[in-house]
Simulated assay, not measured.
Amino acid sequence: MRGPLLRLVFVLGLPVVLVAVWWAASAGSKDVYWPPLRTIVETFPDVWTGERWRGDVLPSVLRLAAGYALAAVAGVALGTLVGSRRRVRAVCEPVLEFLRAVPPPVLVPVIMLFAGIGDTMKIVVIATGCVWPVLLNTVEGVRAVDPVMAETARSYGITGAARLRRVVLPSASPQIFAGLRQALSIGIILMVISEMFAASNGLGFTIVQFQRSFAIPGMWTGILLLGLLGFVLSVLFQLVERRVLGWYHGLRDASRRS
């Protein structure tokens, strides 16, 4: 009982302190652009009604999920191929480094030319930015497979798809999940940016509309909602990671005790 309680204190301690500092620092604010946190909290339920959740929040989450899933599948597949084939890696590495250095927001106008201004554009933008941490971490994870383990699998005749499923991917999975974690935060950022370009709904679109109409408390509620969304997604990701990589965390905890 004491362990979970301490973890809860560590998780919630700093956010509670920061909210308390924000509340106290902004309590007497008369600045139009820096309203008191109390005003923002009171405005929140008036702004984010059921209709707005369905019309703005849900579409944003669905775009994020689609783009993130596309990036995860493509990143793991391409990363496994590049990481396991030396010649493929030698050919692709310069191109991958070049493309990785291009900031995804810069590609939004280009993607709009080919994908239009609908949901497809936004999903492609999210996938384009999220794929790189997944791909590069997968490459490094596949390259770091224990040679003894790989040779043992070869000796027992475990080759092809069986080797990939039982040796390569499990060994590379900690690195893959590290890339997926990085991609999640990038995906949220790109979700907002893509919705600021020629959009008619979504969190990014709504926040910009509040800013343009000088509904400053409403704009701050959107920013607050984005932070809460990122926190919830991070917690869900950690739960999935702990379940999938239970064996890895168990080995790491055991090594710390010894």
Rank of each mutant, 00 (worst) to 15 (best):
V9R: 12
L8S: 12
I117E: 00
P103R: 08
A24R: 14
G157C: 01
V148C: 10
E151P: 06
A199D: 04
A65D: 07
A162D: 15
I123H: 01
V47H: 08
K30R: 12
L190H: 03
C92Q: 12
S255D: 07
P174N: 06
C130I: 02
G157I: 00
L229R: 13
I111T: 04
F98W: 14
E93S: 14
R163I: 05
P59T: 04
G13K: 08
V244R: 11
G246R: 13
R163V: 02
I126H: 02
Y248Q: 12
Q211F: 06
G50Q: 07
R52D: 01
A101W: 03
R257Y: 12
T221I: 04
V167F: 07
S173Y: 08
G13N: 10
L236I: 06
C130Y: 04
S200P: 00
F114W: 14
G157S: 02
S84T: 08
A153T: 08
N201T: 09
D56G: 04
L78A: 14
G13V: 11
M149L: 15
S234A: 14
L190Y: 09
A199M: 07
P59R: 05
R252P: 04
R100V: 09
T206Q: 15
V73L: 11
D46R: 09
V76H: 01
R2F: 10
W53V: 15
G3Q: 14
T159Y: 14
W220T: 01
S26N: 02
S155I: 07
V41T: 01
A150K: 14
P15R: 03
D119W: 03
Y156E: 04
V91H: 04
G13L: 05
S26K: 00
R89K: 15
V82N: 03
R7T: 04
I193C: 06
P217K: 07
V131M: 02
T49D: 03
I207H: 01
V82M: 07
F10G: 06
G118T: 05
D46A: 07
T43D: 00
T39C: 00
I189Y: 05
I193R: 01
L190C: 12
V168R: 06
E241F: 13
K122R: 13
R256N: 15
A115N: 09
P217Q: 15
Q238E: 13
L64G: 13
S84Y: 04
V232I: 03
A153Y: 12
E51S: 13
G141N: 07
Y248C: 03
L226G: 09
R163N: 07
I123P: 00
I40N: 02
I126N: 00
R242L: 13
G75Q: 09
G79V: 00
A115T: 06
R256W: 07
R100M: 11
Q209G: 08
C92G: 08
R256Q: 15
G141D: 10
I40Y: 05
R85I: 04
L190F: 09
E42C: 03
L245W: 13
T120Y: 10
L5R: 14
S185Y: 15
V9C: 12
L228C: 15
L136M: 12
L107H: 01
G67D: 05
V102W: 12
R38L: 07
V47C: 03
R38H: 10
M196G: 00
R38K: 10
L96R: 05
P36F: 14
R2K: 12
G3I: 07
D119V: 08
T80E: 05
V167E: 15
S155P: 03
S185L: 12
A115E: 11
T138Q: 04
V124I: 05
L37N: 00
D253Y: 05
V240I: 06
M191W: 11
